[in-house]
Amino acid sequence: METLPTLPPPGTIARRGRLLRAVLRRGPGCFRRDEGGVAAVEFALISIPFLALVGAILETALGFFASQNLEIAVSNTARQIYTGQFQGGLAAGTSAEQALAKFKILLCKDRVTVFPCSDVKVDVLALPDNRGIAITGPIDPATGDWRAGFGSRYQAPEDNQIVVVQAAVAIPAFFSLLNPSTYKASQGRSRIIQTAVAFRTEPYK
């Protein structure tokens, strides 16, 4: 059975005709003079870049706070190498991997950080006096990822020896377009914070 078309309610066609005639009399300029909803449109246009800028500012502040936390943690823990307390606490036959793991445990012990402390990469390098100190960054500029071997080196420091302790960790970067100091680390778009301390150990022996 064929369905008959539904007719509009009585008077609808007449109202539409009057509206159309009013628009034609006033011309299309009547829409330009209508300012209803302007505030909502302006807020929508401004809110997106404004919120992005606020987020970038908060992310930058968080990065500075995380960098300060890492610097304090590395400085305080490296002090145990400076005095020989760390070396003296290692058992005989401790491997370089085990010593580095213990150093990271001390680095994270009783600390409140804004990043996973277990993700911190640390190098402990002992340098002879006749060798210059050349510290390379943790990021390989060619790949934009961690430099090969970084975070896996522990060279047992002796007394009265130059030691460099370098540490770095990746924190998420949600506003990378507004923050150019970001890298494509292996765990995603991240910002790398790093610190390094250099000192000569005490003649503790």
Results as ranks from 00 to 15, higher is better:
Pro5His: 07
Ile139Gln: 06
Gly89Trp: 12
Pro180Glu: 13
Ala61Val: 13
Val38Cys: 10
Ala78Gln: 04
Val74Cys: 05
Arg15Thr: 15
Ile46Gln: 06
Gly55Arg: 10
Gly149Leu: 03
Lys109Glu: 13
Arg191Val: 15
Gly137Trp: 02
Gln80Glu: 14
Phe31Glu: 04
Asn160Trp: 03
Thr182Ile: 06
Met1Asn: 07
Phe50Pro: 07
Val197Asn: 11
Glu158Trp: 08
Asp159Asn: 14
Cys117Phe: 03
Thr136Ala: 13
Thr136Asp: 12
Arg32Val: 15
Lys121Met: 14
Gly88Trp: 03
Pro9Phe: 04
Ile48Val: 15
Gly144Gln: 05
Gln87Glu: 13
Val23Phe: 14
Ala78Asn: 06
Thr94Asp: 11
Leu127Tyr: 05
Ala148Asp: 08
Ile171Val: 14
Gln80Lys: 10
Pro49Cys: 05
Leu24Val: 14
Glu2Val: 14
Pro172Ser: 09
Ala168Cys: 02
Arg15Ala: 14
Val120Leu: 01
Ser181Lys: 08
Gly36Trp: 06
Asn179Cys: 07
Glu2His: 08
Leu100Asn: 02
Ser118Asn: 08
Gln87Pro: 04
Tyr183Asp: 12
Ile81Pro: 00
Pro8Arg: 13
Ile135Lys: 01
Arg21Asp: 10
Ala73Asp: 00
Glu42Arg: 09
Thr83Cys: 05
Asp129Pro: 04
Ala198Gln: 08
Ala44Trp: 06
Ala126Tyr: 06
Thr3His: 08
Arg25Leu: 11
Val124Asn: 00
Phe64Ala: 12
Ala44Ile: 15
Thr201Tyr: 01
Leu53Tyr: 05
Gln161Ser: 08
Gly84Phe: 03
Asn179Val: 15
Trp146Arg: 08
Gly137Arg: 02
Phe115Ala: 04
Ser190Phe: 00
Val169Glu: 00
Val38Ile: 15
Leu100Gly: 02
Ala101Val: 02
Pro116Tyr: 06
Gly27Leu: 02
Thr136Pro: 03
Leu4Asp: 14
Trp146Leu: 09
Thr182Phe: 02
Asn69Met: 14
Leu100Glu: 02
Pro10His: 10
Phe31His: 03
Leu178Ile: 03
Pro49Leu: 05
Arg131Phe: 12
Gln187Leu: 13
Glu42Thr: 15
Leu19Pro: 02
Ala198Ile: 15
Ala92Gly: 09
Lys121Phe: 12
Lys102Arg: 12
Val38Glu: 12
Arg25Asp: 07
Ala73Gly: 00
Cys30Arg: 09
Glu42Lys: 07
Gly144Phe: 05
Ile46Arg: 04
Ser47Ile: 09
Glu42Phe: 10
Lys102Tyr: 11
Thr182Asp: 02
Leu90Lys: 03
Phe50Lys: 10
Leu62Pro: 05
Ile57Gln: 09
Ala91Asp: 13
Asp129Thr: 13
Ser152Asn: 05
Ala96Leu: 04
Asp34Gly: 06
Glu158Ser: 11
Leu19Thr: 09
Ile133Tyr: 07
Val165His: 03
Ala99Cys: 01
Thr182Cys: 05
Leu107Asp: 07
Leu100Tyr: 04
Ala134Met: 03
Ala96Met: 04
Leu107Met: 10
Glu71Asn: 05
Ser181Cys: 07
Gln166Phe: 12
Arg189Tyr: 04
Ile81Gln: 00
Gln80Ser: 13
Gly89Ser: 11
Arg79Gly: 10
Thr201Glu: 00
Phe174Lys: 02
Leu4Val: 14
Thr201Ser: 03
Val120Asp: 00
Gly27Trp: 01
Gln87Ile: 15
